[in-house]
């Protein structure tokens, strides 16, 4: 009897091992899919687009491996490789998520810095406008005032771009605003200087 059991034991053991590897690693697959979704949420497709495409590719390979194993006869199914792929996909996705968040934070920081510089520049422009004469001398500055108001309004658009997390557009816009407001400030200073010089010359006469 005991000898018969010994003869059968290897077969039973083999069956146990086979069925142990015969179930798809559902938990690991779900974890991998969630990690890829999290990476997408972090802006991976924007900030690390190629890396994101690769982790999507890994997910596709994983799903194919699972489908291939599912198509096999139960006893010969082996989801070992699928499990490895799922674990690797999760790890890669977490790495890509971290990279995306880092690049997104860098882009945001750059946009905020540019926005701050633009706001400072526009403030200088508006302060100069406030110095504009209100009498008959104001003619020289009337046209320029509209430019200053336009720059102030454009700062709102920069904030909207930041709110939408379009940091690249926000940064470019803020840099353009700073450049333009510097030019407008110079124009105002030139006009104010002309007014001052003209009045001084008139007094001398």
């Amino acid at each position: 009897m005991f000898e018969k059991l010994l003869n059968v034991a290897p077969i039973v053991l083999a069956l146990v091992v086979a069925t142990g590897c015969a179930k798809p690693p559902t938990e690991q697959i779900e974890a991998a899919e969630k990690a890829v979704a999290d990476a997408q949420q972090s802006g991976a497709s924007t900030y690390v687009a190629e890396e994101y495409a690769k982790i999507e590719g890994t997910l596709v390979a994983l799903r194919k491996e699972v489908a291939d194993q599912d198509a096999k006869f139960g006893l010969v199914r082996d989801y070992g490789k699928a499990e490895q792929l799922a674990v690797a996909a999760k790890a890669d996705a977490e790495r890509v998520k971290a990279e995306a968040e880092k690049k997104r934070d860098e882009a945001k920081a750059a946009a905020l810095q540019a926005q701050h510089a633009a706001e400072e520049s526009v403030k200088v422009t508006l302060d100069l406008v406030a110095k504009a004469p209100t009498g008959k001398d104001r003619a020289a500055l009337e046209a320029i005032k509209a430019d200053a108001e336009a720059l102030k309004a454009s700062l709102n658009q920069t904030q909207m771009a930041i709110d939408k997390a379009d940091y690249q557009a926000a940064q470019k816009q803020a840099e353009a605003i700073r450049e333009k407001s510097t030019a407008v400030s110079h124009e105002i200073e030139t006009a104010l200087a002309k007014i001052g010089k003209g009045k001084a010359a008139a007094k001398k006469k």
Binding site: S45, A49, E50, Y52, A53, K54, I55, E56, G57, T58, V60, A61, K64, E65, K81, Q84, L85, A88
Partner: peptide, 26 residues
């Protein structure tokens, strides 16, 4: 392809390449 910003310029082309590469890489 990454230098060319392929994923941004031609996302379908790069996705096809990347998916195949990842499958073969395993």
């Amino acid at each position: 392809l990454m230098d060319l910003r392929a994923a941004e310029l031609s996302p379908d082309d790069y996705a096809r390449f990347a998916h195949q590469w990842m499958a073969l890489k395993t």
